[in-house]
Design a protein around this nucleic acid. Structure first.
Lengths: 160, 160
DNA sequence: TATTGTTATACTCTATAACTATA
DNA sequence: TATAGTTATAGAGTATAACAATA
C-alpha cells in the first residue's frame, strides 16, 4: 500500500510512493475542483470530458469509461436531468442512441478544465519551466508505451 | 477537462494532460489490483494503507482520508465485517475508539502493496533507472512543497 | 457546552440479471 | 441469435442532521 498522499512525505520517497501520492493529489484536485465549482462528481466530470470531442453511443461510453452499460445509462440519466447532455436516436442503428454535450454542458466542461489546469500549474509551481518539460516528457513516454501495450483497449475515438 | 487516460495519447501531451492521465493510470492500477486480488474497493484499500503504521480514532481516520466521520464509521463497519480491522475502546478518552488492523488485514495490505509496486515497476519499464530517479526526484519536490503549503491538513501521524 | 461516535436518511455510483426492441 | 439500451435490484460509498455518551 502506498503511503497516504496527504501525510507529510518522508525525506526520501520511493518511486512507487511518489507516483501513488501524486496520483491521489492530482485526482483529488480535479475532484475537489469539479465539486466545488458545480457539484460534479469525478465520474460526471470524466463523462463531460470524454464528450468534448466525441458523440459516442451508450456502449461506446461504457468502453471509454470502463463501466457497464447499465452504469452508463444511469450516469447519462443524471447528467441529462441536469441539462448537461442529450440523447439522440441513431439513424444508422435504431437500437442505439448518441450522447452529446448540450451547450451548457460544454461551457461547464470547458470552465472546469481551465480551472483544473490552473490548479495543476500552481501545484507544479516549485519546478522550473525546464524541469516541468522534463517531467512531461518522462510521463509522456510512460503513457505512450502503456497505451501501445494495452492499445487494444480504447482506440475507439470515432464511436458509433 | 484532461483527455481520457485510456485513449491513445497524442504525439505532444501537455503537462496537465500528462499528469492527469498518469493519475488515472496509477490510481486505476491500484484499484484493479486490489479488486482483482481480494475484492477490495479503492477506499477500503486506502483504509488498510493508513492503518499499516497508525491506530487512529474514527475522527483521526476521517481527517486522514478526507471523509466525514459518519462515512468512516460505515467504512470501518464493512472492513470489520470482513475481519480486516478491529475497534478497541480508548482508555484515555472513553468517547473514542481506536481502529487497528487484524493480522489478516495486515497480511492482505502487505500483499496488495507488493503487487501494486510490481505493477508500477512494469509501467515504468520504458524508463532507465536514471530517468526513474529523475522522475521520483521531481515528483517528490512537488509533493513536499504541496504538503508544506497545506501542511495544516494532515500531519496527524500519531493520532488519538 | 463541546466533542466522539453512531444512526437515520438520501443520493450517487456500480454491477448483475432480466427484459424490449432492433439487427 | 446477437446486440443496444433500459430497468429492477442490491450493495458500497458519501454527506447532513439528529442523537447518546463522555469530556
Amino acid at each position: 500500500m502506498p503511503s497516504q498522499p496527504t501525510a507529510t512525505p518522508p525525506p526520501q520517497l520511493t518511486t512507487v510512493d511518489a507516483l501513488a501520492q501524486t496520483a491521489f493529489l492530482i485526482q483529488g484536485t480535479l475532484e475537489r475542483r469539479a465539486a466545488a465549482d458545480h457539484g460534479f462528481s469525478l465520474v460526471q466530470t470524466r463523462l463531460l470530458g470524454v464528450l468534448r470531442d466525441r458523440q459516442p453511443t451508450i456502449n461506446g461510453l461504457a468502453r471509454l469509461l470502463g463501466l457497464d452499460k447499465s452504469s452508463v445509462s444511469g450516469l447519462v440519466d443524471r447528467a441529462q436531468r441536469r441539462g448537461l447532455v442529450t440523447r439522440t436516436p441513431s439513424t444508422a442503428d435504431r437500437r442505439s442512441v448518441l450522447v452529446s454535450l448540450t451547450p451548457e454542458g460544454r461551457a461547464l466542461a470547458t470552465e472546469v478544465a481551465g480551472r483544473f489546469a490552473a490548479d495543476v500549474a500552481t501545484i507544479l509551481g516549485p519546478l522550473t519551466p525546464s524541469e516541468r518539460a522534463t517531467l512531461t516528457g518522462l510521463l509522456s513516454r510512460v503513457l505512450v508505451a502503456h497505451a501501445a501495450a494495452h492499445g487494444v483497449d480504447l482506440l475507439a475515438t470515432t464511436d458509433h
